[in-house]
Design a protein around this nucleic acid. Structure first.
Length: 433
RNA sequence: UCCGCGAUAGCUCAAUGGUAGAGCAUUCGGCUGUUAACCGAAGGGUUGUAGGUUCGAGUCCUACUCGCGGAGCCA
């Protein structure tokens, strides 16, 4: 048997028993005839005590020789111990080296971001990065559970696409055999619409790509998006779903991953308040808020990062901004029947300066109007014929939204940069390791 | 693409234009309860690249490279 008898997270079930654990040396302290080995096993950290009088000379030498991140197994008695972080300790009776680690580059003191990103494959072993990745995993599970439990079908759109989905962003381009160029998808939405008209309620969950030369703390070139799309949903139904979704995900994660959030020293006071209903304001009302705060903002422009922060700080909860000037929005958005200059789109702005985490809309379901929009945006109609078919054969009102996973992880974890939210971030000046 | 800042030991950072230093990491020694342990010692440098000013450049000037922060674009 090579797998460990127990994992650190389950040690409360082993108090008073002798177990063998396996992992890596996180840190080591010593005081003459006693060694303190900090074991890391992927589920937590555990201090293992090696007293010279309790073990053989050989075992004590082995404990002494372990370097940072050496892999080893340790056998001993599990004890409750108030002085130890986590509340448990292991009184070691045996220590065996599995494999050495020579000159591990990431020492316990400070490091710069460039060095850490160069060693991202090793940085992931740190307590902080492991906590973030466990939270990311729990967020993804909560999202899938939410849709799975509400009659949605997972619908995987293609990643290689023949055209720009929205015609606005710069995309990564690649040769595709004899068929010319293909592009890495920037959104699965148009395909999800086909899914919604086939299956009723679907969601996509996968990577998306933007070749924009964005250089900010909120952008990656490769990021994950979850995009529900629902037949017979109007914009209000869409907003109802978005706020129920955010409430479920956040309340689940702050309950289930509390210890990881504590390790990140995340103050969850504002996250606990993320409960329905969220404020819903029109674009026009949002502009009014900016003007009242003395911001020089022109009606019709899109909000910048600073503007979003001012609007969300006004509420201390996620705020839904709907009914935008149509010129700034994508071609597929339906117009407001009461004012055709407005698009039935909604952006959800997260509090604490995290900005837009959700963008959604009711889609244009009228064939003639959609063709008109494609022409207005100078898009090649031949690429959209399949999309227009969705309006030719039993068109229905439908809506959906897209949520940026990494921005949500950054928000929940309270991170100041999106690059720590994904194992190997892809940014404008970095595609390694 | 634009604006701003930066690059010195493996890492994080010091160093009036005048002999390049500290902490961590590594190696050796000490300590039976340490919490980024502590105490003592040792090894470790083409100061990002190229050029210029000067008796003398890590320091001043020019260009370039790379990185960081922000803007725009967006999730």
């Amino acid at each position: 048997m090579t797998k460990p008898q127990a994992y650190i997270k389950d040690l409360n079930e082993f108090v008073g028993k002798e177990v063998t654990l396996k992992g890596w040396l996180y840190n080591k302290r010593s005081s003459g005839k006693v060694k303190f080995l900090i074991l890391r096993d992927g589920t937590g950290l555990l201090q293992c005590i090696v007293f010279k009088g309790n073990v053989s000379e050989e075992v004590f030498e082995t404990a002494d020789s372990l370097a940072q991140e050496a892999s080893f197994e340790v056998t001993g008695l599990v004890k409750e111990e108030k002085r130890a972080p986590g509340g448990f300790e292991l009184d070691a009776t045996d220590v065996k080296l599995i494999a050495a680690s020579v000159d591990y580059p990431i020492s316990p003191k400070d490091h710069g971001i460039e060095f850490l990103m160069d060693h991202r494959h090793l940085w992931l072993r740190s307590k902080r990065q492991a906590a973030i990745l466990r939270i990311r995993h729990r967020i993804i599970k909560a999202m899938r559970d939410f849709f799975d439990d509400r009659g949605f079908t997972l619908f995987d759109p293609p990643i290689l696409t023949p055209n720009a989905c929205e015609g606005t962003s710069t995309l990564f381009e690649t040769e595709y055999f004899d068929l010319g160029s293909a592009f890495l998808t920037q959104s699965g939405q148009l395909y999800a619409e086909a899914g919604a008209l086939a299956l009723g309620k679907v969601y996509t969950f996968g990577p998306t790509f933007r070749a924009e030369k964005s250089k900010t703390r909120r952008h990656l070139t490769e990021f994950w998006m979850v995009e529900p799309e629902m037949a017979f949903f109007d914009l209000d139904d869409d907003m109802d779903l978005a706020e129920e979704f955010l409430e479920y995900v956040i309340q689940t994660v702050i309950t289930e991953r509390k210890s990881d959030l504590d390790d990140l020293e995340r103050d969850t006071t504002l996250l606990e308040q993320v409960k329905r209903p969220f404020p819903r304001i029109t674009y026009e009302e949002a502009v009014k808020i900016l003007h009242e705060k003395g911001v020089d903002f022109k009606y019709g422009d899109d909000f910048g990062a600073a503007d979003e922060t001012i609007i969300s700080d006004h509420f201390q909860k996620p705020v839904m901004v709907h009914r935008w000037p149509a010129e700034t929005k994508a071609f597929y958005m339906k117009r407001d029947e009461n004012n055709p200059n407005l698009a039935l789109g909604v952006d959800v702005l997260a509090p604490e300066g995290y900005g837009e985490v959700i963008g959604g809309s009711q889609r244009e379901d009228n064939l003639d109007l959609l063709i008109e929009r494609i022409k207005e945006h100078n898009l090649p109609q031949e690429y959209f014929e399949w999309y227009l078919d969705l309006r030719r054969y039993g068109s229905v009102p439908h809506s959906g939204f897209g949520l940026g996973l990494e921005r949500t992880v950054a928000w929940i974890c309270g991170l100041d940069h999106i690059r720590e939210t994904i194992p190997f971030p892809r940014m404008i000046y970095r595609n390694t390791p």
